[in-house]
């Protein structure tokens, strides 16, 4: 499988990364090398093998769905690049 410039452009858009034409070219080349190397996984027969997501085998704990923390807007907002009273701000979305 080879990744063309168009595919890389689409993936970059999904990831919200901006790549100019030169970067697209270079990135496509690098990713192609990496995916060619990754393709050695084709040698492995994984039929009837379950995917592994958790290594410990421990089951995830449950707790009551209740508020356990919070009520400190100033702490939450203390690193905001921009704030308006107790809110984060973003550029205008709706005209």
């Amino acid at each position: 499988m080879s990744l063309d410039k168009g595919t890389v452009r689409r993936v970059a858009q999904l990831a919200r990364l901006r790549l100019d034409d030169e970067q697209l070219e270079k990135t496509a080349e690098e990713l192609n090398k990496i995916f060619t190397w990754i393709e050695q996984l084709d040698e492995v027969d994984v039929s009837n093998i379950e995917p592994l997501a958790s290594v410990t085998g421990h089951s995830l704990p449950e707790r009551m769905d209740e508020v356990t923390d919070g009520n400190y807007p100033d702490r939450v907002l203390s690193n905001a690049p921009d704030r308006a009273s107790n809110f984060f701000t973003v550029p205008k979305v709706v005209e």
Binding site: L3, V11, A12, A15, V46, I49, P51, L52
Partner: peptide, 28 residues
């Protein structure tokens, strides 16, 4: 680079071929 690799292997049409496959090899 890694964000692009990750976005690609999780994107529609490639998820099974890459991500799910890798999770199965991880089992082995």
């Amino acid at each position: 680079r890694r964000i692009l690799i990750g976005t690609y292997v999780l994107s529609a049409g490639y998820y099974d071929a890459y991500y799910l496959k890798a999770q199965r090899v991880r089992s082995l």
